[in-house]
Design a protein around this nucleic acid. Structure first.
Length: 281
DNA sequence: ACCTAAACCTGGGCGC
DNA sequence: TGCGCCCAGGTTTAGG
């Protein structure tokens, strides 16, 4: 489910809650959801949280716990309440509800009794203990200086495959998924199926700027949660980026920029939306 | 090298 | 009501 802005939102939330805490126990309900020996992080103190591409990295002194949420993963933090000896549920609109629920795959408990729940309906996501961060095989971070025009142009010239496929390839560029690739191509006014190596310098410039723009918009809006089972932050709240979608999930509606209709096609097996006017083939 | 389809899973929505 | 199909924010693998 989550792309860069959603994982970044989780990262920023977790940073405030669990850095400095020590892991007391790890309970695994679905074995494929947790890879590695959990004993290697008990009892270990969390010294930092890192996001790399769509991967969340919980840092210990001598190893790391990687978390990939794939399509339906959630990380929900629950503070232990000393007063009533229960886990307080913050808001009524909290549709994650009582935890653990039927989708809870892993529970991490900290030394102060706070808990972190890893829920994942489809079981695609995973937690994995690794010694170091080599072998991640990921392209540059689009919001860092390393994502230069020169790098981007070189990357695009290597392939005549559809531009949307190329920017979603995590070995080329980190963190861009189906929603943000779709939105970025709209703002850059580029047809998603256009061969990557056929983009002009002006288009490459526009696309680089648009990718950065939509990712920053996603972060500012605390992620996108268009469907009920979709992204939640660590408190269980939805993001608001879906309110600002220009074309994604807007098939048949008017383009926000012109009178053109928004059309849906399949590209690389993924739903792809574009304005027939602004994004000419 | 490219490209597609399938696989991994579960559930919601739709047409009949 | 129910069945069958298609869809879903990701990634890997198999096969043509």
């Amino acid at each position: 489910m989550p792309e860069l802005p959603e994982v970044e939102t989780i990262k920023r939330g977790l940073e405030k809650k669990i850095v400095g805490l020590t892991i007391k126990s790890v309970e695994v309900f679905t074995s494929k959801s947790f890879q590695g020996d959990k004993g290697k992080i008990i009892p270990k103190k969390i010294i930092g949280i890192i996001r790399r591409a769509k991967i969340l990295i919980i840092e210990f002194r001598d190893n790391y716990l990687l978390v990939h949420l794939k399509m339906t993963g959630q990380l929900i933090f629950r503070k232990f309440s000393m007063t009533n000896n229960q886990f307080s549920i913050k808001t009524k609109r909290y549709d994650v509800g009582e935890l653990p629920n039927k989708y809870t795959r892993v529970i991490i408990e900290f030394n102060n009794k706070d808990k972190l729940y890893f829920n994942d309906l489809r079981k695609f996501g995973w937690m994995k203990i690794v010694k170091n961060l080599d072998n991640l095989k990921l392209g540059p971070e689009p919001l860092e200086k390393e994502f230069t025009f020169e790098y981007f142009k070189k990357m695009l010239k290597k392939s005549r495959r559809p531009i949307k496929i190329i920017i979603m390839d995590q070995q080329n560029l980190s963190g861009v998924g189906n929603i943000y690739a779709t939105e970025a191509l709209f703002y850059a006014q580029i047809y998603p199926g256009k061969p990557a190596n056929s983009l002009s310098d002006i288009e490459i410039l526009r696309l680089r700027k648009s990718i950065i723009k939509v990712l920053k918009m996603g972060i500012a809006n605390l992620g996108s949660s268009s469907k009920d089972e979709a992204f939640r932050d660590i408190e269980g709240n939805k993001g608001s980026m879906q309110k600002h979608f220009a074309v994604y999930e807007r098939e048949g509606l008017d383009c926000p920029g012109c009178k053109g209709k928004i059309k849906k096609i399949k590209l690389g097996g993924r739903g792809t939306y574009f304005c027939v006017n602004c994004q000419k083939q």
